[in-house]
Computed example of a mutant assay.
Amino acid sequence: MESRRRKPDWLKMRPPSGTRFTEIRSTLRDRNLNTVCEEANCPNLGECWSGRDGPGTATFMLMGDRCSRGCNFCDVETGGMEPLDPEEPENVADAVAEIGLEYVVLTSVDRDDLEDGGSAHFAETIRAINDRDPEILVEVLIPDFGGDPDAVDRIIDAEPDVIAHNVETVERLQWPVRDRRAGYDQSLRVLDRVNRTSDVHTKTSLMLGVGEYDHEVYRTLSDLREIDVDIVTFGQYLQPSRSHLDVFEYVHPDVFETWRRVAEEEFGFLYCASGPMVRSSYKAGELFVDALLREGDSVEHARRRARAAGEA
């Protein structure tokens, strides 16, 4: 299979190490917290946790380490759902303060077993962080909550700075890439509702290398801009194990750069992070939002700062 061949040089990862990495891991363990960085085997874990370009960052994964869905690209375990930890929102806020983060990313597993999909728990965590320090910027990467608009509204009402929801791939490939309970139109409705009912920045992410055609990626960008999504990221799909979806293609970095230019220059996205190792929660993207919101930079200046950090 294509995915079992030797990976190209541009996909080589640096193993996590360093004092800062150890400190963050220890803080998370002490508070019984999960991160998507570890659970999904993110290739950027070492870079982000080491704090090479700043105080370090981590993407907290709420509501446990088991998902009610079984997407064929994801390494998070499926099934065996457990009750929510009522102390998790405060534990996350405590960890954020202890680590010294200025920009926090929250995501979660899907919890279709819960009546509200866990949206109230998600919102409580956002508020716990904001109550501790309103200067902290909070980005959330939310599930689709089964298409429930009330659940999306709970997230909006908690006032995060960025709301992300991933379409993951082009419309034709939603299955077999995603669980059948997810869907292209449903994801677009989530992002559209955020944009129609709030001023918060919206963000989404696509994986390349799962068999998409260029015209399908182009159409996806068009659909996203039609509902005013602000930020998009592109990354290479990597097969977590042989039981997961095969890699169709290892996409060259030059192609990722082309999609970045198309997204920003042709479609007018505020920012596009695009590269083989880019993931939806990606430090350069966070630095862009930080410069845009905290520093009040222009879009172009914020882009330059984020690019410089990403290339360092």
Results as ranks from 00 to 15, higher is better:
residue 42 C to I: 14
residue 42 C to H: 11
residue 42 C to N: 12
residue 43 P to Q: 14
residue 44 N to P: 12
residue 45 L to W: 00
residue 48 C to M: 14
residue 48 C to Q: 09
residue 48 C to F: 11
residue 50 S to A: 13
residue 50 S to G: 13
residue 51 G to F: 01
residue 51 G to Y: 01
residue 51 G to E: 00
residue 52 R to M: 14
residue 53 D to C: 15
residue 53 D to R: 13
residue 54 G to V: 09
residue 54 G to P: 12
residue 54 G to I: 05
residue 55 P to Y: 10
residue 55 P to A: 11
residue 56 G to V: 03
residue 57 T to N: 07
residue 57 T to M: 08
residue 57 T to F: 06
residue 58 A to I: 09
residue 58 A to Y: 07
residue 58 A to P: 06
residue 60 F to G: 02
residue 61 M to K: 03
residue 61 M to R: 01
residue 61 M to Y: 05
residue 62 L to G: 00
residue 63 M to K: 03
residue 63 M to E: 00
residue 63 M to D: 02
residue 64 G to V: 04
residue 64 G to N: 06
residue 64 G to L: 05
residue 66 R to A: 13
residue 70 G to T: 15
residue 71 C to W: 10
residue 71 C to Y: 10
residue 74 C to M: 10
residue 75 D to Y: 10
residue 75 D to G: 13
residue 75 D to P: 07
residue 75 D to Q: 13
residue 76 V to E: 04
residue 76 V to Y: 05
residue 78 T to P: 02
residue 78 T to E: 05
residue 80 G to I: 09
residue 81 M to C: 15
residue 82 E to A: 07
residue 83 P to V: 10
residue 83 P to N: 12
residue 84 L to W: 03
residue 85 D to I: 06
residue 85 D to R: 08
residue 86 P to L: 09
residue 87 E to D: 11
residue 87 E to G: 06
residue 88 E to C: 08
residue 90 E to W: 02
residue 90 E to H: 02
residue 90 E to Q: 05
residue 93 A to T: 08
residue 94 D to M: 11
residue 94 D to R: 09
residue 94 D to P: 08
residue 96 V to W: 02
residue 97 A to G: 11
residue 100 G to S: 08
residue 100 G to M: 03
residue 100 G to D: 03
residue 101 L to E: 11
residue 102 E to Y: 13
residue 103 Y to E: 03
residue 104 V to D: 05
residue 104 V to K: 06
residue 104 V to M: 08
residue 107 T to E: 04
residue 108 S to Y: 13
residue 108 S to A: 14
residue 110 D to G: 02
residue 110 D to K: 02
residue 112 D to F: 03
residue 112 D to Y: 03
residue 112 D to N: 07
residue 113 D to R: 06
residue 113 D to L: 11
residue 114 L to C: 06
residue 114 L to V: 08
residue 114 L to Q: 04
residue 115 E to C: 11
residue 115 E to I: 10
residue 115 E to W: 14
residue 117 G to D: 10
residue 117 G to K: 08
residue 118 G to N: 00
residue 118 G to R: 00
residue 119 S to M: 15
residue 119 S to Y: 12
residue 120 A to D: 07
residue 120 A to V: 09
residue 120 A to W: 02
residue 120 A to F: 06
residue 121 H to M: 05
residue 121 H to P: 01
residue 122 F to M: 04
residue 122 F to Q: 01
residue 123 A to W: 02
residue 123 A to Q: 03
residue 124 E to H: 10
residue 124 E to I: 14
residue 125 T to P: 01
residue 126 I to M: 02
residue 127 R to K: 10
residue 128 A to N: 04
residue 129 I to S: 00
residue 129 I to K: 00
residue 130 N to H: 15
residue 130 N to Q: 15
residue 131 D to R: 13
residue 132 R to Q: 07
residue 132 R to P: 05
residue 134 P to G: 15
residue 134 P to Y: 15
residue 134 P to M: 15
residue 135 E to I: 00
residue 136 I to H: 04
residue 137 L to T: 11
residue 137 L to C: 12
residue 137 L to S: 13
residue 139 E to T: 09
residue 139 E to Y: 04
residue 139 E to D: 11
residue 139 E to M: 09
residue 140 V to I: 15
residue 140 V to W: 06
residue 141 L to H: 10
residue 141 L to W: 08
residue 143 P to I: 01
residue 143 P to W: 00
residue 144 D to G: 14
residue 144 D to R: 04
residue 144 D to C: 09
